[in-house]
Computed example of a mutant assay.
Amino acid sequence: MRVVSQERVVRGGCAFFLRHGTLDMDGLAGSLSVSRATLYRVVHGRDPLLGEVLWRLAERMLARAHAETTSPGLDGVLETTRRFADQVRQAEPFLAFLHAEPATAARVLFTPAGGVHARVVAAQRGILAAATDPAWSPGDLDGAAYLYVRIIESALYAELLGGHRADPGTTERAARAVLEAC
C-alpha cells in the first residue's frame, strides 16, 4: 500500500477537477497511483474532498478579486463580490460540475457536508472587518457576513436553486442593504 498525504490528494483533486469538471474517485486514485481504499482512508469520502477542492479554487478566486479591488469601504466589498462572481461565472470546470451534478453541488456548497459555505462566510467576515467601521461588534460582522453570503449565493446559483437567473442589480441592492443596515 502506498501512503499519500491529504495535501497531495487535495492538490491532485484540484488538478483533476480543473481538467474534468468533476471529481471521479477512481480516476483520481489512478492519477495519484494509490488504491481507491487508500484515497478514501485519507479523505473520508467524495463530498469532503469536493468541498476542499471547491474551497481551494474559490479561495484563489476570492483572493484575486480582493487584490484587484480599487474601491474603499462597502463599495470595495461589493466590487470584490462582483469580481469574484464574474470569475465563478467564467470557470468552465465549475459550471460543468454544477450542470452535471446539481444535487451534489448543492450539498457540497451549501451544507456542512462540504464545508464550503462556512468557509466563504468566514472569508467574507474578514473582508467586511477590513472594510468597515471598527465599531462593529463581532456579532454584527458574523450576522452581516452570513446574510451577505446567502444573498450572493442565492443570486450566483439561482439557476441551480430555482431554475432561473437572478437580476444582478437587484442582488447588489439587497447585498448593499444588508451591509448598510449593520
Rank of each mutant, 00 (worst) to 15 (best):
H44C: 09
G115L: 12
W136R: 11
R19N: 04
V77Y: 04
L156F: 07
R19S: 15
L32M: 14
P72K: 08
A106G: 05
G163N: 05
G21A: 10
D75A: 12
E52T: 02
E153S: 12
A130K: 06
A131N: 04
V53S: 03
S5W: 09
G114W: 10
V116N: 01
Y146A: 12
A118V: 04
Y146V: 00
R60K: 08
L62A: 13
F110Y: 12
A135Q: 12
F110H: 07
I151Y: 04
L179I: 12
L57C: 14
T22C: 15
T38E: 08
M1C: 13
L57H: 02
G139D: 14
D26N: 11
A174Y: 06
T81V: 11
Q124D: 00
Q6D: 11
F110L: 15
V34W: 12
G30C: 01
G162A: 10
V149W: 10
I152N: 02
L179C: 11
L95I: 05
G126L: 13
G27L: 08
L74D: 06
T69H: 06
T38G: 05
A100V: 03
P112K: 11
D26T: 13
L156Y: 10
P112S: 01
T70N: 13
R46M: 07
T22R: 15
D24H: 00
H99I: 03
T22P: 01
A29Y: 03
M1Q: 11
R107E: 07
R19V: 14
R2D: 05
R150L: 09
A145E: 10
V121E: 02
R176W: 01
S33K: 03
V149A: 09
L128K: 04
T171E: 15
A91I: 00
L74F: 06
A85Q: 09
A37M: 13
A135M: 05
P102V: 15
A166M: 06
G163P: 13
A106R: 15
R64N: 12
D47Q: 11
G114S: 09
A105L: 13
P112W: 08
A135W: 08
R89D: 01
R83Y: 09
G143K: 01
A135L: 11
E68A: 14
R19T: 09
G30V: 00
D142T: 10
D86R: 11
F16C: 14
A155V: 10
V43G: 05
L50A: 08
V77T: 03
D133Q: 03
